[in-house]
Design a protein around this nucleic acid. Structure first.
Lengths: 164, 164
DNA sequence: GACAATTGTTGTCGTCAACAACAATCTTTC
DNA sequence: GAAAGATTGTTGTTGACGACAACAATTGTC
């Protein structure tokens, strides 16, 4: 609507700019504000970047962390079960486990009840490593609290609990 | 902590499973629940899939929609300004605009004040198309409300307003 | 035992973020 | 005003990731 105002874009507000703002900061988003997906996407990028940075010293990415945590809490799971639970393609999990097995965090044990599947376990090294990862992940979670507030983080988790 | 309880994982509760549950539904996530990033990631995947499906008939993806909306609200922006505002790599925006220009939604006009940059505008076709996209996007937004609740969606937008 | 379904694997395709390099152009500095 | 540096758009590469399709081995079903 109002397709006439083509050239008169509200680029800057009146020239009382005291702070040295970046030009891009003042561009209106119009209909984009009010879209949940856009806000969630931007937030998700921020949160993942902080996670990757906080766990950068141990070189663990969010997906790897979720796999290790799940196996640590439920030893013996099959790859299919892990993939389903985390919403990962089982094809993709293969590569993830290849990497984690190479780093000696996880081992694939041939299941005896179903010789098609592998029972997934953490190695001893994997368990001690995961303990360290969890400490770093808790630190990351504190960053989130600092960013959006403790209350808001709790509400967020409550609202999105159905997706975990 | 408690690194001893390795094999005794709480896999299934007592075998009173009446409903035909999927096996993967009952796997505990342990520390993963309580991680904001995990919940946000899962939600973001869901919301994008619904967006892509709802706008499937017009073949518009979330990023394309955000670019069109931003240009529609701020005609004449440079590619750099759009990229910064949306948090997109300017290298990536090049391909996005190539596609949108091919479909005759956007045109790159050589700027006369800065001959390096392009002023981005919607074509007439692009404006009418965007109006349709916005209607479909509103429908998608209703899906979000149905999924998490009207109140929760509003709270989500409030909490994440800083990231838009 | 024949046939369908499942599991892990390999491969391809397309999206996306992150870099790096480059030519053209603008801005700053001397 | 010329040289040096920064910016803009572009091209290319890399790697993570989701989605699909095919396959062998194995299991389940009829």
């Amino acid at each position: 609507m109002t397709a006439s105002a083509t050239q008169t874009a509200p680029r800057k507000r009146a020239g009382n700019g005291a702070a040295p703002h970046d030009v891009a900061d003042e561009i209106g988003l119009d209909a984009l504000v009010g879209h949940a997906g856009y806000a969630v996407r931007r937030f998700q990028i921020w949160i993942f970047q902080d996670f990757i940075k906080t766990l950068g010293a141990v070189d663990i990415r969010p997906t790897q962390y979720s796999v290790l945590t799940l196996i640590g809490a439920n030893p013996g799971l099959s790859q299919m079960a892990v993939a389903k639970r985390l919403g990962i393609e089982r094809a993709r999990l293969v590569h993830l486990l290849d990497s984690l097995e190479q780093r000696n965090y996880v081992k694939r044990v041939k299941s005896k009840v179903d010789r098609r599947s592998h029972a997934l376990h953490l190695t001893t090294q994997g368990e001690t490593a995961l303990a360290k990862f969890k400490r770093l992940a808790a630190e990351h979670e504190r960053h989130v609290e600092e960013k959006i507030g403790k209350e808001n983080r709790a509400q967020l988790l409550r609202i999105l609990a159905g997706f975990t």
